[in-house]
Design a protein around this nucleic acid. Structure first.
Length: 426
RNA sequence: GGAGAGGUCGCAUAGUGGUCUAGUGCGCCGCACUCGAAAUGCGGUGAGGUCUCACGGCCUCCGUGGGUUCGAAUCCCACCCUCUCCGCCA
C-alpha cells in the first residue's frame, strides 16, 4: 500500500509507476472518492463535536435536577444522531471503496530499476562459476532421479495429484540435508534468527504481505476455517510483527525460516513443468528482514549476497539478474533474481528472488518503529529473499554432479548432512 | 466440541449508562532535593485523522464489527483471541 497523501499529491507519479509495471489503476476514482470522504469526515467531526456537547449539557442538567430543560436539548441530540448515522453509512461505503482501490495500486519501482517491457530488459549484474561440461551426454534431473530411485513422480501423482512429489531414500535424505544445511548456514554464518512458522495463515496475514486481495486464485484455501496454506514463509514470518511498534535498537531484524510452500499455479500448466521445475508443494528456506528506510537498499545487497553465498558454497553456476520495471511483482520496489544453470536441460532456473518492499508491506501490515524514544512511529522497510527453494536446487545438484556411471556426487558441505559422498547408481 | 472466566492508555489493575476529555500503581521522561545516586516530591507520559504559519483546537480508538440511547468501557447481538475444567485426538 502506498501512503494516501502521497497518492493524493502525486497522482501522476503513481500512474506512471503503475504503468511501468503494466498495471492499470483507477486513480481518478481514487481522487474523487478520497476528496468526498475527506469532506464528509470534516463535516461529521463537526456534528460529532456538537453531539458530544449536547450530551454533556443534558448530563449536567439531569444531575442538577432540571429535567424539563434537559428534555429540550434531546430533540437536537436526536436529529444530530440521525444525521451522523446516515453520514457514517456513506463514510463506510466510501472507506471500503477507497481501500479496495488502494489495495490494487502496486508499489512504485525504485529509481535504480531499469525501465523495460519484458524479460529481455532485465540486467545481468553477476555471473558466477563455470558451466559444467561432460565427456558423456548428461541426463536431465528427472531421468537421474528415477534411475537412482530417489524420486517417485508417479507415487506423488497417485497420492495427491500432479505436481506433488514423493522423495525416497537418498532423495528424501538429500531434501532434509539441504534445508538443514541452509538454515544452519544462514543462522550460524550470517546472523539470522531461526524461525519455524505455521504453514497455515489467516486473511489478515495475506493482506499484510500483499498476496490478498489480488492473488487469491493462486492460494490453497481451507474454506471451513477460512485459512490458507502459505505460498511462502514470507507470509507468516513478516506478519510476526504485524501491528507492532519496534524499537530502533531491534533493527535490523533478520529471520531465516524453513517451510513448505503451497501454490496452486493456476494457469501455469505446460510451462517449465517437467520434473521438479514447477510443483504445487515445495520446501524453501526464506530470509526476511525488517530495517530502517535509510538502510534498506544496503540490506537488499547483503541479503542477496546471503542467498548467493549458499549457491557459491555448493559450487553451483548461477547469475544474478536485476529485474526491469515490467517484471517486478506487485509489491516490489526492487528485485534481484538468482538463476542457477541447469547443465543438462541447458536452462537458467529461477531459484531465489531478493526483494525490497520498502514500506509497502509495512503499511499494509502496520509494522512501525521509533527512531528514538518519544519519536513519532514510522513504517519499517521489509525485505525478503529465498535462501533458497529446494526442488530446483535439487534438480541442478543432480544435473551438475552426475557421473558417467550414473551416480551423483554430493558437494562437500552437504556430506555430513546426507551421510554419504556419493549417491550410488542402482 | 461442551461448561466457565476473561480481553481497559508499555506492564499490572479500577471502572456495570452522564464529574471517564478512563482513575491508581509500576515503568519511562523532565524538574526539585543531592557532591553524585537512592529514596522522596512535583509535572509529564499512547495511536490515527483533520484544521492551524504556530500556540493549540476538534474527531476517532477500552479485542473486532454491528445495534439500543440525547449520551456506551459500561446494555444488546455476532465474531475473534486468551485462560481453567471436561471431551476427543497426534
Amino acid at each position: 500500500m502506498l501512503d494516501r497523501s502521497f497518492i493524493r499529491s502525486n497522482p501522476d507519479s503513481v500512474r506512471e509507476g503503475a504503468a511501468l509495471k503494466r498495471i492499470e489503476v483507477p486513480l481518478d476514482e481514487f481522487l474523487t472518492v478520497d476528496a468526498e470522504l475527506r469532506t464528509l469526515k470534516t463535516e461529521l467531526d463537526g456534528k460529532r463535536a456538537e453531539s458530544n456537547a449536547t450530551g454533556k449539557t443534558i448530563g449536567e442538567l439531569m444531575r442538577a435536577g432540571k429535567k424539563d430543560e434537559a428534555a429540550s436539548h434531546q430533540d437536537r441530540g436526536k436529529s444530530l444522531r440521525e444525521e451522523i448515522q446516515s453520514g457514517e453509512e456513506r463514510e463506510r461505503e466510501l472507506e471500503a471503496r477507497l481501500l479496495e482501490i488502494e489495495l490494487q495500486i502496486p508499489n512504485m519501482p525504485h529509481e535504480s530499476v531499469p525501465i523495460g517491457t519484458s524479460e529481455e530488459d532485465n540486467q545481468v549484474v553477476l555471473e558466477w562459476g563455470e558451466r559444467p561440461s561432460f565427456n558423456f551426454p548428461p541426463k536431465p534431473h528427472w531421468e537421474i532421479a528415477e534411475s537412482l530411485g530417489i524420486i517417485d513422480f508417479a507415487a506423488g501423482s497417485k497420492v495427491s495429484g500432479s505436481g506433488f512429489i514423493v522423495y525416497r531414500g537418498f532423495g528424501a535424505r538429500l531434501q532434509r540435508a539441504l534445508f538443514n544445511y541452509m538454515v544452519d548456514f544462514q543462522t550460524q554464518q550470517r546472523g539470522y534468527v531461526e524461525i519455524y512458522p505455521p504453514f497455515v495463515v489467516n486473511r489478515a496475514s495475506l493482506l499484510g504481505t500483499g498476496q490478498l486481495p489480488k492473488f487469491e486464485e493462486d492460494l490453497y484455501l481451507m474454506e471451513r476455517d477460512d485459512l490458507f496454506l502459505i505460498p511462502t514463509a514470507e507470509v507468516p514470518v513478516t506478519n510476526i510483527h504485524r501491528d507492532e511498534i519496534l524499537d530502533s535498537e531491534q533493527l535490523p531484524i533478520k529471520y531465516a525460516a524453513f517451510s513448505a510452500c503451497f501454490r496452486r499455479e493456476a494457469g501455469a500448466a505446460g510451462k517449465d513443468t517437467r520434473g521438479l521445475l514447477r510443483v504445487h508443494e515445495f520446501d524453501k528456506v526464506e530470509l526476511v528482514k525488517f530495517c530502517t528506510p535509510e538502510s534498506s537498499y544496503a540490506e537488499l545487497e547483503t541479503m542477496r549476497g546471503d542467498a548467493e553465498a549458499v549457491l557459491q558454497s555448493l559450487g553451483l553456476c548461477y547469475r544474478t539478474v536485476m529485474l526491469c520495471t515490467a517484471e517486478l511483482s506487485f509489491s516490489n520496489a526492487k528485485c534481484y533474481d538468482l538463476e542457477i544453470w541447469a547443465p543438462a536441460i541447458e536452462k537458467h532456473l529461477e531459484i531465489s528472488s531478493a526483494s525490497n518492499f520498502e514500506a509497502f508491506q509495512a503499511r499494509r501490515a502496520n509494522i512501525r518503529y521509533r527512531s528514538e524514544q518519544g519519536a513519532k512511529p514510522q513504517f519499517v522497510h521489509t525485505l525478503n529473499a529465498s535462501g533458497v527453494a529446494l526442488p530446483r536446487l535439487m534438480a541442478v545438484l543432480l544435473e551438475t554432479n552426475q557421473q558417467e556411471d550414473g551416480s551423483v556426487k554430493i558437494p562437500e558441505p552437504l556430506r555430513p548432512y546426507v551421510g554419504t559422498d556419493v549417491i550410488p547408481a542402482n
